[in-house]
């Protein structure tokens, strides 16, 4: 079998495992972006010249399909509204918000059976946590911004801030 360069293999492995937290003392494979918070560190993909998958839109190319993308976006917005309360700062690392607050805010911003909306939203929160957009601790009942939000370019934050300002304030939290 051909020997694979260990650094190449480490980067390929990171693509498969997705953003998995490891202890901050461990080195991040070369060529990946290191995102740290407290004791934990994540290795995220480093794209050339600051490009993001959003470039696909410019080329009329469809990205990987997502189940119920509109709903996932609204759930992410509700979570950010609760966790990213100092909007002048960067979203990462943000602060932990109560899961119940996120679900309540989400339910107030959508139409339909509130109980059903909450159940679906939990599923979306889990998927957003699996992919590194949020950190979800179901036992503690908390949600935080995920490591991927650390990679958002400063110039892309303005429209996001404007959107979050238009949303209702987080139910239980202190809006700053």
């Amino acid at each position: 079998m051909t020997q694979v360069d260990p650094q190449v293999l480490a980067r390929a492995r990171a693509r498969i495992t997705g953003p998995v937290a490891f202890p901050a003392a461990e080195p991040v494979p070369a060529g990946l972006t290191r995102v740290a918070a407290g004791e934990r560190v994540w290795a995220l993909p480093a794209w050339p010249d600051g490009a993001t998958p959003a470039v696909l839109e410019e080329y009329q190319t469809l990205p990987m399909p997502l189940d119920r993308p509109g709903q996932a976006r609204r759930v992410l917005a509700a979570a950010l509204r609760c966790c990213w309360t100092r909007l002048d700062d960067a979203p990462w690392p943000g602060r932990a918000a109560a899961l119940t607050d996120v679900l309540e805010l989400y339910a107030t911003t959508t139409r339909g059976d509130a109980e059903l909306m909450r159940r679906w939203a939990v599923g979306d929160l889990r998927r957003l946590a699996d992919t590194g957009w949020l950190l979800l601790d179901e036992e503690a009942g908390t949600v935080r911004p995920g490591p991927r939000t650390a990679l958002w370019a400063e110039e892309s934050l303005a429209p996001l801030r404007a959107l979050l300002r238009r949303m209702p304030p987080p139910p239980g939290g202190s809006d700053e």
Partner: peptide, 24 residues
Amino acid sequence: RRAELVAAYMAVEHAAGPVPEVRF
């Protein structure tokens, strides 16, 4: 050229399906 290379790289890595070379 550099922008074209980056666009093609991002497209083949993130697109839902094969991308037509006529666009890249």
